[in-house]
Design a protein around this nucleic acid. Sequence first.
RNA 1: CGGGGUGUAGCGCAGCCCGGUUAGCGCGCUUCGUUCGGGACGAAGAGGUCGGGAGUUCGAAUCUCCCCACCCCGACCA
Length: 562
Amino acid sequence: MKLSKSFIPTLKEVPNDAVVTSHVLMLRAGMVRMLSAGIYSFLPLGYKVVKKVCEIIHQEMDAIGGQEFHLPALNPKEIWEETNRVEAFGDTMFHVKNREYILAPTHEEIMTYHARRVLASYKDMPQTWYQIQTKFRNEPRPRSGIIRGRQFLMKDSYSFDTTQEGLNESYKLHDSAYRNIFERCGLKFFVVGASSGAMGGSGSEEFMVKSSAGEDTVAYCESCGYAGNVEVATSKVEALKRDDVSKDIYEISTPNVKSIDELCAFLNIDETQCAKSRVYINDKEAVLVLMLGNEEVNETKLEKVTGSGVRPGHPEELKEFTGADAGSIGPVGFKGRIIADERLRNLNNLFSGANKNDFHIGGIDLSRDVPNIEYADLRIIKAGENCPRCDSKLDVFPAIELGHIFKLGTKYSESMGALFLDENGKSHPIIMGSYGIGVERVIACYIEQHHDERGIVWDTSLAPFQIHLIGLNMKKEEVITASENLYAQLQKEGFEVLFDDRRDAQAGFKFNDADLLGMPIQIIVGEKKLKENKVEVKIRKSGERFEVEIDNLINTIKDLLK
RNA sequence: CGGGGUGUAGCGCAGCCCGGUUAGCGCGCUUCGUUCGGGACGAAGAGGUCGGGAGUUCGAAUCUCCCCACCCCGACCA
């Protein structure tokens, strides 16, 4: 491709609206342009990279027996109503105004639709179906460029099995395919145990990349490799001991004392002597959650205990269920379900709210005074706590979710009636798995991990071109002839070459563009070296440069790109 | 949805507080000349509904109100 004829609008200055590195570089390198918030056009250079990623995905998916589909983005709403997911997605789903259609945010329903009554026998399975296509989600706040958009490219696959063992096998195949894909893309990633959230199902793992631009928070153990989304991660923390003697409970007037810190200051006590109360609503019932001191409630863990969705109670609801406002709520006398964090187990002589504004209660013995109490791990773990597996210190940092694999089970096949007959003629729902990869995120994460102050640094696997050929002074006849010849030769050898043949651009301008675009190898054709029948080769990654006899160039390049 | 910010030429910005000629600057773009291995120089040009609407005023980029778009933090996020 000749640069003089290409649409690769590079930017010298950093666009105002871009914050994260990958976004800045994708804009500066002319890979993408924004059309609207969270909606991006891929320009020719960027789309070349998309296709590289897709090709790797195709190869690895085909290798595990995947079959590619092309499914509609426009879906009849009634199919989504079969699984009740129109309601589940709520405002996140785009609705078409003049038809009963929606824009598909994922494709479980559509794949299941095609599977039902067609995958009718155990003999038809296992099957793995996948597709790479645009999904639509009405994100309330798109951000970080391509990382979180309202429309994005996703590879998703679905497995159909007749047994749990079969599902486990499909899951394992995807797990290894995903590792291959991300490795071949040159990403440093790790795998974490995850919450399966509103997708439903049992097992679930996320493929993550550490990044300050990430929206997930993960706990990671350097020494044993334990990794978990903080939504589900656990840690070992020092247990607290019960006092030998339990005091009687007593009421304390605590005017205007609301937070745990204020309470500790007012009574001159430690926060580990306090049980913080949070009221959640679950199935229209109030659930009182007790945490030690200032520790935060992990709502995902809480939902696991309650079995269904929770939300914090509104101020009016707090008053209605407890008789007090936030800051004065406590377990003594509370009538609903009470779940306390494990760290509070059996503690006594605690302070908590009195369910009466401006009053607290001291001397609480959870075993004695809160008979119906339940305990569960409800904490959000913190960096520096001990790894649950090996006791080393845990690291906690933000990360980007690249891929997610789920054992769905029969959630969709049951609600949609995708059944098969087994060897005995008995009917069962198909056992499904679902596996996604954010294609654009792969690119953004790659750039987050592979750039320097001059620009992007592509590996050959994802590079839009292998070689950036630079003709320096394209007004000199000998430079034109030599570089045109090399261009033709390299192409004949099958290399992907971007040829900077621009007549007017100065040398420095071309060098800077080449470093910004970041092809693995630059070949520089200049007047002086040509006199010795030589050109210069620069390795983008290392910055290393050396002279090569023109006659040896092809072989040198072949060696370098091996 | 809550909080904060921005919107002036393709890009980056100044001007606005304190209203008053043809609205500026840098980069980019066009033409000519010089230069030609790390973002050149000179000369001459083109390019603007000042985000949109309403209002105040003799007069609005500037003041007031409404709306829209975009960014950041939070909430949300299969």
